[in-house]
Design a protein around this nucleic acid. Structure first.
Length: 397
RNA sequence: GGAGGGGUGCCGGAGUGGUUAAUCGGAGCAGUCUGUAAAAUUGCCGCCCGGAAGGGCUUCGCAGGUUCGAAUCCUGCCCCCUCCA
C-alpha cells in the first residue's frame, strides 16, 4: 500500500538513532538507507499468545512511530506459527497450542493496543500462516539445511542451557529460523526488537543474504526494567504496566517504581527532551528535586500519551486523594450486602478463602468506614465502605 | 539398544518411617515507617471450624500395599531429563 507520500530524507538522525536505542547493526547502512529516499519496510513481529502490550514494548513502538513520521512503512507480523513454539527463554518450553479463534482474538486485542501508538495508515499486517501455511516438509528441510547446530548454539541462551545439561527442544532451535524466514517473506529492510532479540534478528539478516535479498538492518532497543526494579518488564513476572490499563492504574504503577528507574523511563517512554532529562539527572544527584515530583511528571506524561489530558488530571486527582490524603475515592466496587465481614471479603474477591479473609482482618488490613477492624466476627451494615490494604475499596449495598 | 538422574506447596529446593501441613530461599499479601520509592522491621502465606487454647479435613506424579503410623518402605503404572551407542 503505497500512499504516495514522500519520504523525508534528512531526518533528525540523533533523535532517531540515539535516544532509546541500544544497538544498531549496521549503523552506516541505516543512515544510507534513510538518505536514499526509499520507503523502508520496518518489521515488527509479535506472538499472539500474549496479547497485552506494556511499557517495555512501547519503547519499540515509539521508534516505529518515529520512522513512520518520516514516511516509512511498518510491517506487523502476527506470529501465529511461532506462538506455538514460544520464544526460547529457557523458562517455559512447552506452551499449550492455541485454538484458531483464540489466536484471532489475541491478535485483535494486540492490534487494538498497537495502534494506540503506531499509525495504522502506514502499517501492513501480515500473518505468518500466509507463508508457513503452505510450507511443506521439503521447504522445512531446505530452510534448516542452511544452518548448523554450531551456529544456533552460538545463541547465549542455548549455550548456557546446553552446558548446564538442561533441555532444549528441537522446535526451539527452529524458532529463530522461522522468524528469520519472516524477514525473507516480507522483504524487511529493518527489523526492530529488544536487545534479547539480537540473535534472532541476526539470523534473519543471514538468511536474507543467502537467498539473495539485501540483509535487513537491526534496530535494538534497551529492555525496560519492570516495576520491581530488578527484572525486565514482562507479563509473566507481573512487574509490568500495561498500556491498556486504566489511567489511574497506570498513574499509580508509575508512582510505585523505584527511584532508580525514573530517568530510564523518561528516556525510553516519554518525549521529554534530553536537555530536561539532564536537569532531572542533576537535580536527583544533588537532591534538589524530590523524586516523587519527577515520578508524578512521568506518570502524567505517560497517561497523556496513552489517553488524554483529562484522563491525566483525573488520575492525578485520584492518586492525591487516595494515597496522599488517604481519603476514600469516588469510585468503588459495589458488593451485595452479606452481614459477615469475612464473607464479604471473599465474595468481593479480596480474599481467596475465609481463612485468608480472617488473616487480613487479624493483621489490621481492613478498615470499615475508616476505622480499623480486627474482629473476625465483625458484622457489617449496608452502606459500609470497606478498605482492604492500601488501595482496594468496596461498598456493601 | 545401554547407563544414570528425577517428578514435593506459585517458583526454586530440603526432607528417606512418627516430634512434617512439611526446613530454607525467592515471589506474593498485610502491618509499622514513608514519597503507593528504597532500605529496615513484623506477621501471614492448603482448606474449614473456633474468641482463644485448639480441632477437623485434604496434600508431596498416579494406583494399590506393608505398618499403630508413610512424602519417606514395597509393587505396578504414567511422565520428564542427561549421557553413551
Amino acid at each position: 500500500m503505497d500512499t504516495g507520500e514522500k519520504v523525508t530524507i534528512s531526518p533528525d538522525i540523533s533523535r532517531l538513532l540515539r535516544r532509546g536505542v541500544a544497538e544498531i547493526i549496521v549503523e552506516e547502512e541505516i543512515v544510507e538507507l534513510l538518505r536514499s529516499g526509499k520507503r523502508l519496510r520496518l518489521k515488527e513481529g509479535f506472538d499472539p499468545s500474549f496479547p497485552d502490550i506494556h511499557l517495555g514494548h512501547m519503547v519499540t513502538l515509539k521508534k516505529l512511530r518515529q520512522f513512520q513520521e518520516l514516511g516509512h512503512q511498518v510491517v506487523l507480523i502476527v506470529g501465529d506459527w511461532t506462538a506455538q513454539i514460544g520464544d526460547p527463554s529457557g523458562v517455559s518450553v512447552t506452551r499449550p497450542m492455541l485454538s484458531a479463534e483464540q489466536v484471532q482474538a489475541n491478535a485483535e486485542t494486540y492490534m487494538k493496543q498497537f495502534f494506540k501508538l503506531v499509525d495504522r495508515e502506514k502499517t501492513e499486517v501480515r500473518w505468518q500462516s500466509e507463508w508457513f501455511g503452505k510450507f511443506t516438509l521439503a521447504d522445512i528441510i531446505q530452510l534448516t539445511s542452511k544452518f548448523t547446530i554450531a551456529q544456533l548454539m552460538a545463541r547465549e541462551d542455548f549455550a548456557t542451557r546446553y552446558k548446564a545439561g538442561r533441555p532444549i527442544a528441537i522446535t526451539e532451535l527452529l524458532y529463530p529460523l522461522l522468524q528469520a524466514y519472516d524477514s525473507v517473506a516480507i522483504q524487511a529492510d529493518i527489523e526492530f526488537g529488544g536487545t534479547d532479540q539480537k540473535f534472532n534478528l541476526l539470523v534473519g539478516r543471514e538468511l536474507q543474504s543467502m537467498v539473495g535479498q539485501s540483509p535487513q538492518q537491526i534496530f535494538l532497543v534497551p529492555l525496560l526494567i519492570g516495576t520491581d526494579g530488578s527484572q525486565k518488564m514482562s507479563k509473566s513476572l507481573g512487574n509490568y504496566i500495561g498500556i491498556a490499563e486504566p489511567p489511574s492504574e497506570i498513574y499509580g504503577k508509575v508512582m510505585s517504581i523505584p527511584d532508580s528507574l525514573i530517568l530510564q523511563y523518561f528516556e525510553l517512554v516519554t518525549e521529554v527532551p534530553d536537555k530536561e532529562l539532564e536537569e532531572f539527572r542533576q537535580g536527583l544527584k544533588d537532591e534538589t528535586i524530590n523524586p516523587m515530583t519527577l515520578k508524578k511528571r512521568l506518570a502524567r506524561e505517560l497517561v497523556t500519551q496513552l489517553y488524554s489530558q483529562q484522563a491525566t488530571s483525573e488520575a492525578e486527582e485520584h492518586f492525591t486523594k487516595v494515597f496522599q490524603k488517604r481519603e476514600v475515592p469516588e469510585e468503588r466496587t459495589e458488593v451485595p450486602f452479606t452481614g459477615e465481614l469475612v464473607l464479604l471479603l471473599v465474595k468481593a474477591g479480596l480474599a481467596k478463602s475465609r481463612s485468608e479473609a480472617r488473616r487480613l482482618i487479624e493483621q489490621g488490613a481492613v478498615d470499615v468506614d475508616g476505622k480499623r477492624v480486627t474482629d473476625t466476627h465483625w458484622k457489617i451494615v449496608k452502606g459500609n465502605i470497606i478498605k482492604v490494604g492500601k488501595r482496594r475499596f468496596i461498598e456493601s449495598t
